[in-house]
């Protein structure tokens, strides 16, 4: 009867993972943490490798940095501000920024710690949970339908961590075209409509 079994949707998976996080927060449950690790570590590694292909050690370091925060901050994470997938993305992004700053050829004294919200309780006004999942669905569907040149530019900026200028150099496009493609993509995804 396996053909009758309903396939788990991304939403079901997220509910299960969120339950794991709650067990980590409330019970310091290591097996729940292991489940989170199994799901997110390969994603975090892929994210790191998108920017630095071949750097497995850097990717493993990023996993450790992010999962350390998951263990320590599970109790302060506020699901009203972002779902678990988005929280993991912001943690991975913040850890990557910090890593790049520490390993940059040109030093800067700017400490990014207090600059990027980590979806903890003191953050901005939460939005409605119901609306959140709808937005999520529309972004997922929208990404599938983006013209290739627009999804390519989002990949460069979000995953490879390229500045607009770097993207313009690599794609041999004028800077203005890079910016307008980002803007068009966001418009298609309806990211910027404030309801």
């Amino acid at each position: 009867m396996s053909s009758m079994t309903k396939r788990a949707t991304p939403g079901d998976k997220l509910v299960a993972l969120s339950a794991c996080l709650a067990r980590v927060a409330n019970d310091r449950d290591k097996s729940a943490f292991a489940e989170l690790f199994d799901h997110y570590a390969p994603q975090i590694r892929a994210y790191s490798l998108a920017r630095e292909p071949g750097s497995d050690l850097v990717a493993d370091d990023l996993v450790q940095e992010v999962m350390t925060r998951v263990w320590l901050k599970a109790a302060s994470y506020n699901p009203g501000l972002a779902n678990l997938n988005t929280w993991i993305f912001t943690l991975a992004r913040n850890c990557r920024i910090d890593y790049l700053r520490r390993n940059s050829r040109y030093a800067t004294e700017i400490d990014p710690t207090d600059m990027f919200n980590e979806m903890e309780d003191e953050g901005p006004d939460p939005f409605q949970l119901a609306q959140q999942s709808r937005v999520e669905e529309s972004i997922r569907e929208g990404l599938k339908q983006l013209p290739r040149e627009q999804s390519e530019i989002l990949t460069k900026v979000y995953l490879e961590g390229k500045s607009h200028q770097q993207a313009s150099d690599e794609l041999k496009l004028p800077l203005g075209t890079v910016k307008s493609r980002v803007r068009l993509a966001l418009k298609k995804l309806e990211v910027l409509v404030v309801r």
């Binding site: 690790f37 390969p42 990717a59 972002a82 988005t86 979000y158 966001l186 990211v191």
Partner: peptide, 22 residues
């Protein structure tokens, strides 16, 4: 609010990557 959605875009893009086994 816009930023919250932009973060969601990043999260979706990250999930679309081919997972790299740990």
């Amino acid at each position: 609010q816009k930023l919250a959605r932009l973060n969601r875009v990043g999260s979706e893009l990250m999930q679309q990557l081919k997972p790299a086994r740990a």
